[in-house]
Amino acid sequence: MIKHESIETNAGLLIVLTLIVISIGGLVEIVPLFFINDTVEEVEGVRPYSALELRGRDIYQREGCYLCHSQMIRPFRDELLRYGHYSLAAESKYDHPFQWGSKRTGPDLARVGNKYSNEWHVAHLVNPRDVVPQSIMPNYPWLLEADLDYSDVQDRMRALKMTGVPYSENQQEFERNVAEFGPAIAEKLDILRAEETLMQQALANDYDGQRSRITEMDALVAYLQVLGTMVDFSKYDEGYFADFR
């Protein structure tokens, strides 16, 4: 037996034993969820982000939007009335790291996709007070000026692929994606064509209102506009989701 006194007088040992005790608490809470079949709901529609949306998500993280915005609508009446359907675990299964958060200086953004127009997002991000006079959100005017750097987008997708996100890098994986997500989306998940599909999406939708350029604003608005829109809730009975808890 180690004596209490020898633990207290040996900082290294104290640290190691403290870590062990704390991890037991964490493991007991978290690990079973990996094995319980009902943790992640079976729903159609959830797909990995396209290359452009992925870059938008990186910018979201770089700018620290998560410090003020959560992306997790909890199953409470008031949240439902304000933000829409509560978030499903399945909706963030391709998010690494997830953006659930708990700090809500601003509203939850889990279902902000398609709620506002692209023009609104651009005006709001450049100076929130132009559209919401009482807003305390900071200005992000540089997003409209900075050209989007997507030279490393393939590497970013490869890194996510290692964590299990189904981006494709060869014909076999591509065909698996066609079977699972359909041909149009499978194309957007193809790492080898990432730069091409990124440009296509940005030019076709012109999120930032500047047709000739692809800016960081294009990427961020593309990301915001897809949040919470992947699952078509009209396809499911409400009680269906209760089976997964």
Binding site: P75, F76, Y86, D237, G239, A242, D243, R245
Partner: peptide
Amino acid sequence: TDSDGSQKTTHWNTRSLLL
């Protein structure tokens, strides 16, 4: 009462509680 009008009984959980 589920969306299709049928009665549904589940074990205690926050989603059913909300409905």
